[in-house]
């Protein structure tokens, strides 16, 4: 059995205890809600996009240390990035979680490979605990859902 130190890195616990970008945003920010049907965890992502750039993001909801810290780090990582960069980041992160997306073309793969994960690398240990991968990816899937609901002008 892999050791818990691989899972509960200090940076993860820090984001869990002190989540960043916690809260809600008023419309026109887009709101998306994600559920982990396995455990009941739920997360809401509020996304504000101006001129193709994430101008603000907030995260609300409840969940375990992995889902909450992943959401917190995600919110920091995507703020100020263009939607193209965010898509590459999501792809890179899900790749780290061993979740490959079927529809990627070569350019997207290359863009994803070039993305720096920074603090998010701390979540790498989650892969050794396959049951928890869904916890780590919950916020990211919810972010993708929010992006899909953006008006065409954003």
């Amino acid at each position: 059995m892999p050791g818990l130190e691989d899972l509960y890195r200090e940076i993860i616990l820090d984001h869990y205890r002190t989540p960043r970008n916690r809260g809600e945003l008023e419309p026109p920010a887009v709101r998306a809600e994600g559920h982990n049907p396995l455990c009941g965890d739920e997360i809401q992502v509020y996304l504000d996009v101006t001129d193709g750039v994430v101008s603000d993001i907030k995260v609300a909801g409840q969940g375990c240390s992995i889902s909450q810290s992943s959401a917190s780090m995600m919110s920091q990582a995507v703020k100020g990035k263009s939607l193209l960069e965010v898509r590459a980041l999501v792809r890179r992160f899900k790749g780290m979680m061993s979740v490959d997306e079927a529809d990627a073309d070569e350019a997207e793969e290359a863009a994803a490979a070039a993305v720096k994960l920074g603090d998010l690398e701390a979540l790498q240990g989650v892969v050794k605990f396959p049951v928890r991968i869904k916890c780590a990816t919950l916020a990211w899937n919810t972010l993708l859902q929010a992006m899909s609901e953006l008006p065409a002008t954003a």
């Binding site: 059995m1 818990l4 899972l7 009941g40 965890d41 375990c64 992995i66 605990f129 928890r132």
Partner: peptide
Amino acid sequence: IHPHDVSQVLDQQNVCVRAGHHCAKPLM
């Protein structure tokens, strides 16, 4: 401590418990 995290830590000692909504979300 979130039940998933409790269950994860208990698993280190092979203590098997359920963590989740137990298919009873209205009660949760």
